[in-house]
C-alpha cells in the first residue's frame, strides 16, 4: 500500500522535472545552442546525483512546516501539489513553482488535520520566495556586467566564443541540475521522510545507503523521467517567452539560477558561513523558475532590452495561484481520502 502512496510523490517529481529543467536548460535549448536530447540527458543524470546529495539539506524545513506522519496524508499532499502544478502548467505553459505548490499543499494538510502552521517557518519560506528572484537577478546582473567588460579584451574569434559558450552551457547546466536536485528533492520526497517504505540501512558492498537516500534516489529518477518526457515545451517557452536572450546571456541565466539554488540548499556552505560569523541563507526549497525569471529580468534591466511584461505578469499570477490551488486540492483530497476511502491522513 505504501508504494501506492509513494506514487503521488513520484508524480510530483515527474511534474517538477517537466518544468524545473526548463529553468536550467530552457534558454540554452531555446537559443539552439544545445539540443534537447543532450540537455535532457545531462539534466537527468545530475538531477539524480543532486537528489541523493540533498538528504541533509532543505527537507528539514518542510518537516518543520508540517510533519506529515501518515502515508495517506503524504500521498494526498504530494498528489495535490503535483496536480496543481500539472493543471497550471497545462493552462499557461510557463514554468510554475513546485516549492509553492508543496508548501500550499502542506498548509492544506495542516488546515484539514487541525495542526498549527508555524508562522516563523512559513514566513521564512515565503520571504525566500521574494528574496530568491531578487538575489538571482542581482547575481545575473553582476555576471553580465563582468562578462561584458571582459569579452572585448579577450580577442576570441566569434566561432571560438560559440564553442566555449556551448561547453559553458553544458557545464553550468550540469551544476544547475545538481543544485535543482539538491534543493528541490525535499519538495518531492520530503513529506514521505517519516513514512519511508525503504529499510533503515542497506549495505551495497562497502556503501551504506540510508532510507532517506533511497527515497531521494527514487524521487530523483522521477524528476529525470519528467525532464525526458515533458520538459521540451516549457524549455522553449521560458527561453524565448520573456525577452530575446543571446547564448552568452543564457549562460549567465543558468549560472545565476544554479548559484541561487545551491546557496539555499548547501548545508556545508551554511555551516562555513556561520563558523566564520557571517550570515547564512536558510536551507529552504526555493523555486528554480522564480530564480530563472529573476535572472532573465536582471539581465534585461541592465542591458535595457525590452521585456514582455505581460508574460512576466502571467508567470507571477501562476506563482500566486499555485499555492492557493494546491492548498485547496490538498484540503479536498484529504477529505475524500479520510471520508470516502476511510484512510487515516494523520496520526491521532
Amino acid at each position: 500500500m505504501i508504494w501506492l502512496f509513494l506514487s503521488s510523490g513520484l508524480f510530483l517529481g515527474w511534474s517538477l522535472g517537466a518544468n524545473g529543467a526548463a529553468t536550467i536548460f530552457g534558454t540554452a535549448v531555446a537559443t539552439r545552442m544545445i539540443r534537447f536530447g543532450t540537455a535532457a540527458l545531462v539534466a537527468g543524470l545530475f538531477v539524480v546525483i543532486g537528489s541523493v546529495a540533498g538528504v541533509s539539506g532543505t527537507a528539514g524545513t518542510l518537516d518543520e512546516l508540517g510533519g506529515i506522519d501518515a502515508p495517506a496524508g503524504a500521498f494526498g499532499v504530494a498528489l495535490a501539489a503535483g496536480l496543481s502544478l500539472f493543471l497550471l502548467l497545462r493552462q499557461s505553459g510557463f514554468p510554475i513553482s513546485t516549492s509553492q505548490s508543496i508548501v500550499g499543499a502542506i498548509v492544506g494538510w495542516n488546515l484539514y488535520t487541525g495542526h498549527a502552521t508555524d508562522p516563523a517557518v512559513l514566513s521564512r519560506i515565503v520571504s525566500s520566495w521574494f528574496f530568491c528572484p531578487l538575489l538571482a537577478g542581482a547575481i545575473a546582473a553582476l555576471f553580465y556586467l563582468s562578462l561584458r567588460a571582459a569579452t572585448p579584451r579577450l580577442r576570441i574569434h566569434l566561432l571560438e566564443v560559440d564553442a566555449l559558450t556551448r561547453v559553458g552551457l553544458l557545464l553550468v547546466g550540469a551544476f544547475g541540475a545538481f543544485s535543482l536536485g539538491q534543493n528541490n528533492i525535499a519538495i518531492v520526497m520530503g513529506v514521505f521522510l517519516r513514512v519511508s517504505p525503504f529499510p533503515e540501512k542497506l549495505m551495497l558492498g562497502p556503501l551504506r545507503v540510508s532510507s532517506a537516500q533511497m527515497l531521494f534516489l527514487a524521487g530523483g529518477l522521477a524528476i529525470a523521467a519528467g525532464i525526458a518526457t515533458y520538459s521540451q515545451h516549457s524549455m522553449r517557452r521560458l527561453g524565448s517567452g520573456l525577452t530575446k536572450l543571446s547564448p552568452l546571456a543564457a549562460l549567465i541565466v543558468v549560472g545565476a539560477t544554479a548559484t541561487v539554488l545551491w546557496l539555499f540548499a548547501s548545508p556545508g556552505l551554511a555551516h562555513f558561513l556561520r563558523a566564520h560569523g557571517l550570515p547564512a541563507l536558510p536551507l529552504v526549497p526555493v523555486s528554480s523558475s522564480q530564480a530563472a525569471v529573476g535572472a532573465i529580468l536582471g539581465i534585461s534591466l541592465v542591458r535595457r532590452s525590452p521585456v514582455r511584461w505581460r508574460s512576466v505578469g502571467e508567470i507571477v499570477l501562476g506563482w500566486v495561484l499555485a499555492p492557493v490551488l494546491a492548498a485547496l486540492i490538498s484540503f479536498i483530497g484529504l477529505f475524500v481520502l479520510a471520508n470516502v476511502f476511510l484512510l487515516p491522513v494523520a496520526t491521532p
Binding site: 574569434h157 566561432l159 571560438e160 560559440d162 564553442a163 566555449l164 561547453v167
Partner: peptide, 12 residues
C-alpha cells in the same frame, strides 16, 4: 574544443 571551428576560421 576548437578542432571543428579552426578549419572554418581559416576558410573565413
Amino acid at each position: 574544443l576548437f578542432r571543428r571551428t579552426r578549419a572554418l576560421e581559416a576558410q573565413i
